[in-house]
Every structure is written in structure tokens, then in C-alpha cells.
């Protein structure tokens, strides 16, 4: 089948303002949008710029807006998009070139919740034990690949980029609810601040956008609950 792919283009070295460019190419239903972008770049327009690496939804490089929804280009098939595809960069982050956005503000929010295990007790000779049930509590939030699909789909983040955003809350959740971590209070304090977890108004865009199907709104709710009750279970 022939597909039409309309792509947001902006090269700061040449363009005063962004524009869209349309390409037509042959595709099959199981082609990934990333395959189409690669073919466009390979045969029609070498200047088209985007990030990609693993091409199967694990590395998180190729998050972009596809037909209005935040998606990974490698995990979105022509079967799902149909023959007309509009591709734009993620919203809410500065566009550097074409589909490449400045990820630094996103990673800054991520770092702000101290996303690493904090436990100053002496390490045992073997593993710190943890029951399968304790491990299960935070399983979902360990899946995050930091692609930014969630944060850049959030109206609160669009309204003010100071909002820490769903991805950072997911990262915090992963440690707050890990029985081995000793800094839940510290992280909850960070998320209780003015640009923290209460900027979430339960719109569910993040949950819908997550290519890893993490129940993000639920995780944010658990963090809010922990703040309210002071309990972690």
C-alpha cells in the first residue's frame, strides 16, 4: 500500500520557522513508523533527523507525536496508523532539529527525585532479602524507559515546565515502595513541594501514552496516598 507521511521539519541553521514536508512511499501493514522514517531518510531526504536505536521499544530514543498521540516510532505499526501519518516532535520540550527535542529539562526533573537506592546500612555478605510480595509492589514502575512520552503528554507540564512530571514521579515511586530503600520520606518531601505531585490532575494522558503500559496515574495516586497517610503499603 502507499502511505503518506507528513513530517514536522525545522533546521535552525536554515529555517526561520518550522514547516511540514510530505513524503509518499510503499509500505506493508507490519512496517513500523520508524521503518518508514528510515526509508525516507535513506532514499528521499537524507536531511531528515531523528533519534533511534534499539527499534523495538526498549531504549526510548524515538518518542514522537504520531497522529496526535505520543508514541515510540518503533512500536507503532502502519496497521495502527493507517495510510496517512502525521509525525511531530514531542510537545513541551524545545525543538533542536526536526524530531529531535532537548531532553535535558526532562532528565533534570528525573534527577531531582534522587532516583537511586539510598540505604546507608552495612551491606550484607549476600543479597538483601526481599519477599516476592514486597518486590511486586513496585514492579510496574521499574519498567520505565525514560522516553518522555508521559511527561510531554501532560497538560500540567505543558502549562508549566517546572512541574516535575509523571516520569519523575514514576522514578520516585520505584524507590519509595522498594523495601530496601530508606529515603522515602526525603522523596515524598520533594514531591510534596509546589511543583510536585499535586500538579497532577488525573487526566490519564500519561497512562495512555506510556509505551510500557505502566499504570502511571495509579502510581501517582499511590504517592499521593503515601503523602496523605504517611504509610507505604
Amino acid at each position: 500500500m502507499e502511505v503518506t507521511i507528513k513530517v514536522f521539519r525545522y533546521n535552525p541553521e536554515k529555517d526561520k520557522k518550522p514547516s511540514y514536508k510530505t513524503y509518499k512511499l510503499e509500505a506493508i501493514e507490519t512496517d513500523r513508523v520508524l521503518d518508514l522514517l528510515e526509508k525516507v531518510k535513506g532514499y528521499q531526504d537524507g536531511t531528515l533527523s531523528f533519534r533511534r536505536s534499539c527499534a523495538h521499544g526498549i531504549c526510548g530514543s524515538d518518542a514522537m507525536r504520531i497522529n496526535g498521540f505520543n508514541r515510540l516510532a518503533c512500536k507503532t505499526l502502519v496497521r495502527d496508523t493507517g495510510a496517512t501519518i502525521i509525525v511531530q516532535p514531542l510537545l513541551g520540550l524545545r525543538v533542536i532539529k526536526d524530531l529531535i527535542v532537548d531532553m535535558e529539562p526532562f532528565f533534570e526533573h528525573y534527577r531531582s527525585v534522587k532516583p537511586w537506592l539510598i540505604n546507608d546500612e552495612p551491606e550484607p555478605e549476600k543479597e538483601r532479602t526481599q519477599s516476592a510480595a514486597q518486590r511486586a509492589i513496585f514492579d510496574d514502575t521499574t519498567k520505565c524507559i525514560l522516553c518522555a512520552c508521559c511527561t510531554t503528554s501532560c497538560p500540567s507540564f505543558w502549562a508549566n515546565e517546572q512541574y516535575v512530571g509523571p516520569a519523575a514521579i514514576v522514578a520516585a515511586h520505584r524507590f519509595i515502595f522498594d523495601s530496601r530503600d530508606k529515603a522515602a520520606a526525603e522523596r515524598l518531601k520533594i514531591l510534596n513541594e509546589v511543583w510536585g505531585v499535586y500538579r497532577c490532575h488525573t487526566v490519564f494522558n500519561c497512562t495512555m501514552a506510556c509505551p510500557r503500559e505502566i499504570q502511571i496515574t495509579k502510581a501517582i495516586g499511590e504517592v499521593k496516598m503515601a503523602l496523605t497517610t504517611g504509610k507505604l503499603e
Binding site: E127, R128, T129, S131
Partner: peptide
């Protein structure tokens, strides 16, 4: 492997809580 666990790696667990 124990070092990775100490760093926080969330290994799956046995019924006894081991890796």
C-alpha cells in the same frame, strides 16, 4: 551479582526472598 543487588537492582525473588 550481589553487588548489583546492593546497588538496588530489583531482581525477582524466590519464596525465601533470595535472588
Amino acid at each position: 551479582v550481589y553487588e548489583l543487588e546492593h546497588m538496588g537492582l530489583p531482581f525477582d525473588r524466590t519464596p525465601e526472598g533470595k535472588i
